[in-house]
Design a binder for these strands. Structure first.
Lengths: 204, 204
DNA sequence: GTCTATAATTAGATAGAC
DNA sequence: GTCTATCTAATTATAGAC
């Protein structure tokens, strides 16, 4: 057995591991401080690496941001698939309810998604347009087609942003919520309560 | 008539006018780019003033941020009062419904509130604690006491963040919403539709 | 592949002219 | 009260040693 034996790590493997560490750190940094507020030095520090290494693996701060966005949306897709696979539903409505719960659970586990979305969605920019074209449109399309009978189609954009906001905010501002209400949004039962609450509102 | 005649502006008046212009620009800047991402030079430019002038009127970037936060919460209080004053309601429930509508209208007109809140609420910081103590606790307290019969008091923190998120997000990310859905959240009828939708969800 | 060193720009805060 | 000039520190991106 050569350099690719179990226990050793090939160069390609280490490269990928380092890139992953940096992308993970970038996701945290960008979500925490926004694109402008986050510094590449801080991201490098979080990743346990050097600032110069970021430019080597990713060409620019902008490209690193795109990699971080790709990562969080990839996690979203994977999480929704895993939470829903194998489940059977008598009605589309029941499926939609479980989809909402799954989304809320993801928002709780990965508040970075909402933070990133608000930070970029509030300004017109190349990053915003890239986000819409590459990640939001497929999701929004699925939101349209994933239900059969809808009372009023003109309400769908409203329902989309209501779900995103109602399902995510409490987790996105968790430190504030703890301070203000005493409730810890990270607690398992709090997450489930919130998921049921939001699902019950949108699909009573 | 002397220096305080109508038509002329006293020194105190000009001072106040300049401060207001700077605070307004700061509110926009901080909401748009976050505390770290916003630069005092950019804020000065928006206010049509010089960077040095910001340090003269406010001692630091931090103090300027507090003035901007005071402003947006002052506007919120004023708007809610004005929208609700003189109205009579048969039941508390009816009043609560109109309070929700009024809040959504404010969120539409001043998306800076939500942007600021998310930007600060996601991290533990002195600014976050100041925000909770000086502005959020009174609001949250009113949210608790403003209704009589509540099905389950343990759901109130959830309802609070659901209302804030559901009522504000579509306006906070208006540029993204336009691009993604074609809907303009700033349009009058869209605001009213959203207000009715959110009020109907929380108080069916 | 990872690091150090550094160039060019921009940041917040201060000092002083007017 | 408002501006210009400047200090110190931090920013992104690049060049080159190992």
């Amino acid at each position: 057995m050569g350099a690719t034996t179990e226990g050793t790590t090939s160069r390609a493997e280490q490269r990928e591991a380092t890139r992953e560490r940096i992308v993970e750190a970038a996701l945290e940094g960008f979500a925490e401080r926004g694109f402008r507020g986050a510094s590449t030095r801080d991201i490098a520090r979080r990743a346990g690496a050097n600032q110069g290494l970021l430019t080597y693996h990713f060409k620019s701060k902008d490209a690193l941001w795109r990699a971080a966005a790709d990562r969080i949306f990839g996690l979203l897709r994977k999480s929704l698939e895993e939470q829903l696979e194998g489940l059977e539903f008598a009605e589309v409505r029941d499926r939609n309810r479980e989809e909402i719960r799954a989304f809320v659970r993801f928002a709780a586990e990965h508040p970075e998604l909402f933070r990133l979305m608000v930070d970029e969605g509030k300004n017109s920019s190349e990053r915003m347009e890239w986000l819409v074209e590459n990640h939001l449109e497929p999701i929004y399309e699925g939101f349209w087609q994933g239900r059969d009978a809808v009372p009023d189609e003109s309400l769908l954009p409203h329902a989309y942003y209501v779900l995103a906001g109602a399902g995510s905010l409490i987790f996105a501002v968790a430190p504030e919520c703890r301070r203000l209400t005493g409730l810890d949004p990270a607690a398992r039962e709090v997450v489930e309560t919130h998921a049921d609450f939001v699902a019950g509102l949108l699909l009573p």
